[in-house]
Amino acid sequence: MSTNQAISVEGDRQKLWQPQRGLNKVVEQVVKLTFLIFALISVATTIGIVLSISYETLEFFKEIPITRFLTETEWSPTFANKKFGIIVLVCGTIVTTAISIGIALPVGLLAAICLSEYAPEKLRRILKPALEILAGVPTVVYGYFALLFVTPILKGFIPGLETFNALSAGLVMGVSIIPLVASLSEDAIYAVPNALRQGSYALGATKRETIMSVVLPSALSGIVASFILAISRAIGETMIVTIAAGQNPQLTVNPFVKVQTMTAYIVQVSKGDTPAGSLVYKTLFAVGAALFFMTLVLNILSFWFVRKFRQKYD
């Protein structure tokens, strides 16, 4: 083939490819625009939630000073003698959350290590979906399971345990969030490059030492993220604590008595009997703002912890 013929063929190829390149550029721009729209929708939704909660919360604080909200030790906004001590609901939330994460975090992390580092690949493919089935159980089922099954068993070991109590609610809530911790932590651990493990073994480290000193630090960001999500899930859990923990707001850290969490109060008031615009109605948004603030603090702490840990190992 002569030089002129080769140039002609190459020119024909370029002419054929030009429309295709143009089409690819159009598709790429459409994809970018679609992603941008969805990102803006997410941001706008978040801003809308914050603004709606903030507006009603500010209306609440126009009637009730924030000092009463933070310092009073009783919570009875529906009574004649109204009290607005949010610390009562916060204590109930913290007690049930502490019990649940005491179960979910160690069990979930150990399950993740077992699935990623010790279980054969075939067994892992069976166990992980089986574990994640727990995440598909409705929380109302967990609530009745805690009330009708776990509480009677605990009463046989703990004299004086009330029918509605924080202990059984926290234990069952911990079981319900184990799949969240295990699945996310296992994904983070499994994603650690195998070369790091082989390098540790080459230096004479045992499997346990490799997991503790190499694998877990490398997967820390994913593990911490799973922990924070689990804690946030426990703080925001509604049906389990509403059914099993009771609806008696009292300032206590005793897990053997009935308590009321922040989410349980929201369920109690938002049943449709509370007039819109009333003071009791506005307490829903004040409690919701407190929940939002707690989860925000948790996320800030997780970002700080991961950043400090990475600086330590860099």
Score class of each variant (00 low, 15 high):
36 L>Y: 03
186 E>P: 05
44 A>Q: 03
225 A>F: 03
158 I>N: 00
151 T>A: 05
224 V>W: 02
154 L>V: 13
42 S>C: 14
240 I>C: 13
292 F>V: 09
1 M>P: 06
141 V>I: 10
313 Y>W: 09
265 Y>Q: 12
74 E>F: 09
229 L>H: 06
190 Y>C: 07
269 V>K: 01
85 G>I: 10
91 C>R: 11
212 M>Q: 09
144 Y>I: 13
28 E>Q: 11
138 P>S: 12
179 P>H: 07
108 G>S: 01
236 G>F: 02
34 T>D: 09
143 G>L: 05
172 V>C: 02
219 A>E: 06
15 K>T: 14
174 G>M: 08
218 S>E: 13
185 S>H: 02
25 K>F: 03
175 V>E: 05
7 I>L: 03
143 G>K: 03
198 Q>Y: 05
50 V>Y: 11
310 R>H: 15
4 N>M: 14
178 I>M: 08
261 T>R: 01
189 I>K: 04
221 S>W: 08
39 A>D: 11
61 F>I: 12
62 K>Q: 13
123 L>Y: 07
158 I>V: 15
106 P>D: 04
247 Q>M: 09
6 A>Y: 04
275 P>Y: 06
100 S>N: 09
22 G>D: 04
142 Y>H: 03
188 A>S: 14
137 V>E: 07
232 S>G: 15
26 V>F: 02
47 I>E: 05
170 G>P: 01
102 G>C: 11
25 K>S: 08
172 V>E: 03
164 F>P: 02
17 W>K: 11
292 F>E: 05
255 P>Q: 13
211 I>P: 08
251 L>Y: 14
179 P>K: 01
56 E>D: 14
4 N>Y: 13
90 V>I: 13
172 V>W: 01
10 E>K: 13
240 I>W: 12
205 A>W: 05
104 A>W: 00
294 M>Q: 08
193 P>A: 10
30 V>Y: 06
283 T>W: 10
83 K>E: 14
54 S>N: 11
166 A>S: 07
147 L>Y: 11
193 P>R: 13
24 N>D: 12
268 Q>D: 15
291 L>M: 14
266 I>A: 01
88 V>N: 01
195 A>L: 10
141 V>Y: 06
70 L>I: 08
88 V>F: 04
102 G>V: 00
227 F>S: 09
114 C>Y: 15
52 S>G: 06
77 P>I: 07
175 V>H: 00
257 V>K: 06
25 K>G: 08
221 S>M: 11
72 E>N: 09
296 L>P: 10
105 L>S: 08
107 V>F: 10
244 A>V: 06
29 Q>F: 02
177 I>A: 14
122 K>H: 04
49 I>H: 03
145 F>G: 07
179 P>I: 05
224 V>G: 02
289 A>C: 09
230 A>L: 00
199 G>C: 11
268 Q>T: 11
236 G>V: 11
236 G>E: 07
101 I>T: 02
120 P>F: 00
126 I>Q: 03
125 R>N: 12
64 I>G: 07
259 V>S: 04
168 S>N: 07
173 M>C: 10
